[in-house]
């Protein structure tokens, strides 16, 4: 299966020795031109090619990783200002803030809305994820792809590395996906949730990253028009307001 190193080296126009040393991590800095040629030789998608360049960036040029930086109050207010489900995530995909509709949509029935959540850990290890997420495998791929990108951006972030190790230890499905090179669809896509009471929620997710920040991510789950998904949010909000009256 796959290509031999010699074939990759030939296709990319580099020597076998040089390619081998890159793969073994024995080359200090790989030029962007070589990375682009390798990506082409391996028929990398644009996202995969971008990931090659991200991984090769020298540590000094990588984003600094202040793990667990608290979210600024104004970022939390930003999440609250969206009418669609919105959350602020750390590089390890811990939810540090989420607006009310996000929490109503995601939280298992009967559990506290403020409970600590990690999107990838919960997806693989929480039984409720198999109830809520309509296409669990699609979500698993997207989660692993997103975590792979974050691990590359924050190679010294202990939370990211700990989470990867925990999931490698505890989930065979995670181990299988982590061994593959998938980075596609890590920042956007269309998914569905099956809320036990409110019904099917079809959404497009997008991620926004404030520039020059601690690596915090704002993620939005926008309902797809014509799918009845806005009504799901309306139902959950009405139910919540009845309960708090």
């Amino acid at each position: 299966p796959g290509l031999r190193r010699q074939e990759v080296a030939d296709l990319a126009g580099v020597s076998l020795d040089y390619y081998t040393r890159i793969e073994q991590g024995r080359v200090g800095e790989v030029s962007p031109a070589v990375l682009t040629a390798l990506g082409r030789a391996l028929r990398a998608t644009p996202e995969e090619s971008a990931h090659l360049h991200r991984l090769a960036a020298s540590p000094a040029r990588r984003r600094s990783s202040r793990a667990q930086a608290p979210a600024r109050p104004s970022l939390l207010a930003l999440a609250d200002s969206f009418a669609v489900p919105a959350a602020v995530l750390t590089p390890s995909l811990d939810v540090v803030a989420a607006n009310l509709v996000w929490r109503l949509l995601i939280t298992p029935p009967g559990q506290s809305l403020t409970r600590d959540k990690n999107l990838v850990r919960d997806h693989f290890l929480e039984p409720y994820a198999r109830v809520l997420v309509a296409d669990w495998s699609l979500g698993a791929r997207a989660g692993v792809a997103g975590l792979r990108v974050q691990a590359a951006l924050h190679p010294h972030d202990e939370r990211v590395q700990q989470l990867v190790q925990e999931l490698l230890d505890r989930s065979e499905e995670f181990r299988r996906l982590w061994s593959m090179p998938d980075v596609d669809g890590s920042t956007h896509g269309r998914h569905r949730l099956l809320h036990p009471r409110a019904g099917q929620y079809t959404y497009d997710y997008e991620t926004l990253q404030p520039p020059g920040d601690e690596g915090l991510i704002v993620t939005l789950f926008s309902p797809v028009p014509g799918t009845g998904s806005q009504e799901v949010l309306d139902t959950l909000l009405a139910e919540h307001h009845r309960g708090t009256e």
Binding site: P1, G2, R5, E23, G25, A44, V164, P181
Partner: peptide, 21 residues
């Protein structure tokens, strides 16, 4: 193994048979 070498190896191992030739 989330580094460049591991990612290249995974891409190389993934390449589908119909691509080779």
């Amino acid at each position: 193994g989330a580094g460049l070498g591991a990612f290249l190896r995974a891409l190389r191992n993934r390449r589908r048979p119909e691509d080779v030739g």
